[in-house]
Amino acid sequence: MTDAPTSSGSLGASVPSASLEAPPLLRRMACWIYEGMLMFAVVFVAGWLFSSLGQVRSGMDARRPLLQAFLFVVFGIYFTWFWSRGQTLAMKTWNIRVVDRAGLPLTQARALLRYVLSWLWFLPPLVALSPFRLTAGEDAVVIFGWVAVWAVASRFHPQRQFWHDAWAGTRLVTSATARKG
């Protein structure tokens, strides 16, 4: 699959398979951390909107599961929209693009599948921690330990892609602007 040239989009030009190589793990993880920082703004705006429209008066309100579900949907819309256009703001900053296996832009459905599968970064440790009453620090160690394991597991993929990308039929590649420079 990596030996065949692929189409680069509307121009019909051929892109060599070398351009579909995964960016270095350190750059992908830097992008991941930056994306997390940018998500604070999304959480802030979505939380404010939810609290205002739902007239939430306290952080201990019983509607917390509804807020979490609302944030899941908002994140899904955010990532699906940006990924179907090739990159988020963090990905632009780090010259990373998400494409399908052939190097073409993602469809909305494939971007949504990638979003759902990307929760493998967090769900396994959250499920494993749920029966225990650990401190926040202990929870953080388990969660960040899993994130490290999940990131390093990409070294075992033939194209060095994250496993949720492989299962979603997507891949992270170096964007065209980085290849030119």
Score class of each variant (00 low, 15 high):
M1E: 14
T2H: 10
A4D: 05
S7V: 11
G9L: 13
E21Q: 11
E21K: 15
L26N: 10
R28F: 14
R28S: 12
R28Y: 10
W32A: 10
Y34N: 02
Y34F: 12
G36K: 12
M37N: 03
M37Y: 06
A41K: 07
V42M: 02
V42R: 02
G54M: 06
S58A: 13
M60H: 14
Q68P: 01
V73D: 00
V74C: 02
F75P: 00
Y78Q: 00
Y78C: 01
Y78H: 08
T80E: 06
T80Y: 11
T80K: 04
T80I: 00
F82V: 05
W83K: 12
W83A: 04
S84Q: 03
G86A: 01
Q87H: 15
Q87R: 14
T88C: 04
L89D: 01
L89Y: 03
I96E: 03
I96W: 01
R97G: 01
V98A: 05
D100K: 13
R101Y: 13
A102W: 09
G103Q: 04
L104D: 07
L104Q: 11
P105M: 11
R110W: 02
A111L: 02
L117A: 04
L117M: 09
S118E: 08
L120W: 13
W121Q: 09
F122R: 05
L123E: 05
L126G: 05
L126W: 13
L126Q: 07
L129H: 01
L129K: 07
F132P: 12
F132M: 14
L134F: 06
G137W: 13
V141K: 08
V142W: 15
I143S: 07
F144E: 12
V147C: 14
A148F: 14
A148C: 14
V149G: 03
V149A: 12
V149P: 07
V152T: 06
A153I: 00
S154F: 03
S154L: 00
H157Y: 03
Q159A: 15
Q159P: 12
R160V: 04
W163E: 06
T170F: 10
R171A: 11
R171P: 12
L172H: 01
T174M: 07
T174Y: 02
T177I: 08
